[in-house]
Nucleic acid binder design. Structure first.
Lengths: 347, 347
DNA sequence: TTGAAAGCGTTACCAG
DNA sequence: CTGGTAACGCTTTCAA
């Protein structure tokens, strides 16, 4: 038999549905005897409360919705892990949706989540997203939304992201302090904020040290391993080798290594590589790699914590959240990258 | 203002709630004029239908629940990706829960999902799970459940898993056919089915070729990189080097490489390594590694497809699902591993 | 073409 | 202590 409901229990015991409801939730105006009879029967007939029926009254669903471009990007897998962690601790269930980088799927996902009346929304927007109508709709619905990693400015929603520019600046500054001057940058696309910011950080650092920016030290492309290989070969055609390569991410770094192997260039002895990464394998592949480690898990946790604040989650204020108390809706948090201190150039 | 409901729209237009409901879903017994009036107002006031209120009637939620031990195991991240893919195509939303390998969290998660009246459940059980009461409860609730990757036998639920034993047998058979005879096995724990099955496959292959099983060629431990290192060192203490090492997974293989580096043993020239893996990085780290590639994404897709069948999802039968038609509840699917054909021992 | 009423499973309020 | 009734947001059936 399918799942029994309170009315059926009430029928068997010849009491009212109200009594059963109260007995099941241990109200103090129900006799112990009645409570026991109700509970025994509930147990016996495998009663399972109906989550959404209750929520119909309370106007809260204790669920939050997530929209990510793709879960097989390990970055988002880790971020979701962090979100789940914080959500579980606060008693929220998570509804996960994936946009596959398509703006229209993203739109539909958000709409579904709104219609499910999630208590809050955590969104990393797709690369394709241009139309922001759906976000206006969210705004009007008054369901809190926090962007994580990939955000849209100017809509009045908070965002939690990595401070790429600052991290890149610090990384390059470190390289300069270590005595290296010729630093190539294999950038990602500057059409994407991550690429733009990391490049800006690189330029900040050089400027600060009074080193002239050389366009022929920088190449743009995509963020894949193949792009890294292409990038290195292109820079290499232009002239002599650098001291260090700054790769915009770990995939690009791998590609640079590929190119160096092909060209017979010894690394890290001859050329050092530094890169952004969130994944341990970058260091496994090349123990010689210096990385800015960004922690997607932390990012997810922070995003969820900020969302809890926006949802007026009881306890979100009382707990010792490490989110500055003054963060209001529409303001954002930037998480710093963590530099691993080493450059293994033997020369 | 919060989200408006149908009653409010009805109030404004001075019509009944029924009319609004029907107009919104384009019923054919409503005049075009009325439909337009209702829709315009709905649009204007940002009406968003209430998912759960509708579902209250239909007895279907168009949601499925997932329970995984951990999402930061990339294996499960990929599997979830496969599930999401199939779910999205069939119009299901996904509620994701994580047990962190704890039996009691797993129990609570399943209970929550039941109470949410998910239409189906996809579960990879935690390592800790002993008590199967909760699964009896699922059984009684008549909500379909399919185990994926990690399953519990004898409960009458279907399971979708990797055919580890067969894959290991084929891998080792391939190694033997390639002319290598001394094959060490750094096994995981035989307390875990994955470990047991891979070891059994190894033994199957040796037996089939009439090669005597030597206990001192096998060592058990855990599944981590450290375990791999320990395992190699232990086997190494016992005698001369093997031709090839069979590692139960890629982490163990990495550990074996660590040990060899430390001991000054040249690989892959001197010792080849073969391993199970689902992750590309294994081959990145060691282009010399021969792996049995298991595809978690495919596993997830298959699991979802089988669940759809069990849920009598309209279309689950008509579509060309590649699940054998005769799979019934309680029966299982084993997905074969894919062998990458190469062993790069230069000797 | 529209509406009244009952129902989905539960809770809240007030009476008895 | 228990029960009747309305309400949550929506759909469906049947009458008008």
């Amino acid at each position: 038999m399918p799942i029994i409901n309170q009315a059926q229990i009430a029928g068997i015991l010849n009491v009212s549905r109200a009594t059963v409801s109260k007995a099941l939730k241990d109200a103090d105006d129900i006799s112990d005897g009645m409570k026991k009879r109700v509970r025994d029967l509930a147990e016996k007939f495998n009663y399972i409360p109906h989550y959404h029926a209750s929520n119909l009254q309370s106007k809260r669903t204790r669920t939050i919705g997530i929209v990510v471009p793709d879960i097989s990007y390990s970055f988002f897998a880790f971020a979701i892990d962090g979100i789940m962690d914080a959500a579980q601790r606060s008693g929220y269930q998570v509804i996960l949706t994936v946009s596959r980088e398509k703006a229209d799927i993203e739109r539909k996902n958000i709409l579904t989540l709104l219609s499910m009346r999630v208590d809050g929304l955590l969104v990393a927007v797709s690369r394709e997203t241009r139309n922001i109508q759906i976000f206006r709709k969210v705004r009007r619905s008054e369901i809190p939304l926090v962007f994580f990693d990939r955000s849209i400015e100017g809509l009045g929603f908070s965002a939690v992201g990595i401070d790429d520019r600052d991290a890149a600046r610090r990384l390059i500054d470190f390289v300069l302090r270590s005595g290296y001057r010729r630093i190539w940058h294999i950038a990602g696309s500057s059409g994407i904020d991550v690429g733009r910011n990391r490049r800006a950080g690189y330029e900040d650092a050089l400027k600060k040290r009074g080193i002239r920016l050389r366009k022929d030290w920088i190449t743009e492309g995509g963020f894949t391993r193949a792009d890294g290989r292409r990038g290195f070969r292109e820079l290499h055609r232009r002239g002599s080798l650098p001291d260090v390569i700054f790769a915009a991410n770990d995939q690009i770094a791998l590609g640079a290594y590929d190119a160096m192997r092909e060209l017979g260039i010894r690394y890290p002895d001859r050329v050092g590589v530094v890169a952004f990464s969130h994944h341990e394998y970058a260091e496994i592949v090349s123990p010689s790699l210096t990385i800015i480690h960004v922690d997607p898990c932390l990012l997810g946790r922070k995003a969820m914590e900020l969302l809890l604040r926006h949802m007026d989650h009881p306890g979100a204020r009382s707990r010792r959240l490490r989110i500055p108390a003054e963060i209001q809706k529409g303001e954002s948090i930037r998480i710093p990258g963590i530099r691993r201190e080493k450059i293994n150039r033997s020369s």
